[in-house]
Design a protein around this nucleic acid. Structure first.
Lengths: 188, 188
DNA sequence: TAAAACAAGTGACATAGATCACATTAAGGT
DNA sequence: ACCTTAATGTGATCTATGTCACTTGTTTTA
């Protein structure tokens, strides 16, 4: 179970088993049920979660009550409300479980300690992860600006073939920024 | 002139003058004219630029020939094609100057050296910058999904009151993902 | 195993925003 | 100062997508 996190880190900064045990000691384990909220708009954002098992999403509820999915997170992905977490502000996002889930989570304080005092090279790992996340978001912005619904849907299927099998069309539509009716009229 | 970069770094990790001179020695100075390209789609992406003076933009040209602005960068901002730069791939973006400009630029190799060998704490600076950039992109995604043209325009004015004075409506429209005619029909 | 809640398809209609086409005015380059 | 090129506004359409409404089938769950 720990292997999944160790493997991810090892791809970027190889750690000894002892080092990894130090890393892990800064995380806690959380178990959640389908439909359970991990974070609600307005609350503080104490943790980033690394998903060990299950499927979660982060989403924004606009003033008219429509929800817009910012991110999905399945095994081996990270999820939080970045703005809330890193700036220590209240959440503008909600996070809930689309399937029963288990995560390793860490506080900002522990993350900082881990990076600066104990294992500086883990900071490089987080920098790489943040960079990759930022690149993905850039592509998403360009996709929203330059592609129509069908092109965005096709791109999503290509990008996340494993994820899509676990999602309803309604969820995919809410991620792509289109209505479920429009998505329904696209697919073969 | 160097002060602008030193001040930015100091806000996150205070440096001695000597340390800052080391940092600076890893950068080069570039001067560019209005309309000049700094990066073209398909080329390699050798540098990140810190803007000392002037105004640049990065944009994506879609297959139908329409351009979509991903980012503006004026004094004190950073700009590059992240995907190309960090993954050492060819650029999918173009960068050109909207005004005569001057930048400090650094290669990936030098950036890595600087972080890992010479001044580890500068890595923390880059991590903070990347985090802030990522948060801005998240908000942009949510804005594109949940707001209409007028709301996005209003938000842009609030967010970048100084930048907007230096931009034509056509450029703002291309950043917001709407046509210049629509933007023209919005403003008072 | 019945009832309730969810997922998905589809018709009819509404609409934000795109596109095309000009006109006017303002900058820049030589 | 003159000519070219850019910037802006505005009318007249067109269209992709949203919204509303209803149906049917499929999971949940009590």
């Amino acid at each position: 179970m720990q292997e999944i996190l160790k493997n991810q880190i090892d791809k970027i900064v190889p750690l000894t088993d002892a080092e990894f045990q130090v890393v892990l000691s800064y995380f806690s384990i959380g178990k959640y049920k389908k439909h359970q909220y991990i974070l609600q708009q307005g609350n503080s954002v104490p943790y980033v979660h690394f998903v060990v098992k299950g499927l979660l999403r982060s989403f924004y509820l606009d003033k008219s009550g429509k929800s817009h999915i910012l991110q999905f997170a399945m095994e081996d992905w990270w999820i939080t409300d970045n703005q809330g977490f890193y700036n220590e502000q209240n959440a503008t996002l909600n996070i809930d479980c689309l399937e029963d889930a288990q995560t390793y989570y860490i506080s900002l304080e522990n993350r900082t300690k881990l990076c600066s005092e104990l294992l500086p090279k883990i900071e490089f790992f987080f920098l790489q992860k943040m960079t990759a996340g930022s690149i993905a978001l850039q592509n998403r912005v360009l996709s929203l600006m330059s592609k129509n619904s069908e092109e965005r849907y096709t791109q999503f299927i290509q990008l996340y073939p494993n994820l899509i099998q676990r999602l309803s069309k309604t969820l995919v539509a809410s991620y792509l920024g289109i209505s479920r009716e429009t998505l329904s009229r696209l697919s073969p």
